[in-house]
Write a protein that binds this DNA or RNA. Structure first.
Length: 195
DNA sequence: TACGTGATCACG
DNA sequence: GTGATCACGTAA
């Protein structure tokens, strides 16, 4: 069942980031379906320095200000596309970065997109999972309940004891806010980034 | 540990 | 216009 808009529009982005663990992200592109269970997320709030919207709206981050339930996709380091889940009400720029998936559907398609002959760690990182699922900037601003891109609840329950909190990756520029425990991973999962 | 890679942003 | 920067991945 696709997640409803009300899942995303809640005001606490950290809660949404935690609850996205265990949900399934899918794409269907040119008839090819690929999907994976979300095993690693990070929350970003416009009130802290790690967030792209900390200093206000720019051309890049504009969709973060949309109503929750759409994708924010941007290019990083000139190579990697990153996909975020926009949360909170319209006008508030909060989002959850999807950092890793456990592959479920279309593993052969994903291996081809990654140009590898094995299925090891093909979705273990924010830049890799977008490539494996075929997500690029053309998905920026698109609904997460669409026909080409969606997130659903497949009944996987992740209990509180299975969730590990840690600091977010790659945001040293954020000063004190880099210390916020806003990264969530599923304990013991083989597919999280950074081992 | 080093660096590719190119859009974006803050200047002015 | 121009230059610095970057929510990474890979090779070494």
């Amino acid at each position: 069942m696709k997640l409803e808009r009300s899942f995303y529009t809640r005001s606490n982005v950290v809660t949404v980031a935690r609850e996205l663990l265990g949900k399934v992200l899918s794409t269907k592109i040119n008839g090819l379906t690929t999907s994976g269970m979300i095993v690693e997320t990070e929350a970003y709030s416009e009130k802290e320095k790690g967030c792209h919207a900390y200093k206000g709206m720019t051309r890049r981050n504009a969709v973060m200000y949309d109503d929750g339930g759409v994708a924010y996709v941007y290019l990083c380091y000139g190579i990697h596309q990153m996909v975020n889940v926009v949360t909170n009400a319209k006008g508030i720029a909060d989002a959850v970065l999807i950092r890793a998936l456990e592959p479920l559907t279309g593993i052969d398609v994903m291996m081809e997109r990654m140009r590898v002959k094995h299925d090891k760690r093909i979705t273990s990182g924010p830049g890799k999972l977008t490539r494996a699922l075929g997500i690029d900037k053309s998905f920026n601003g698109k609904s997460l309940a669409g026909k080409e891109l969606w997130i659903e609840d497949c009944g996987m329950e992740i209990s509180a004891s299975q969730i590990i909190k840690s600091t977010r990756i790659g945001i040293d520029y954020a000063g004190d806010d880099a210390l916020l425990p806003w990264r969530f991973t599923i304990k013991g999962n083989e597919w999280i980034s950074k081992l």
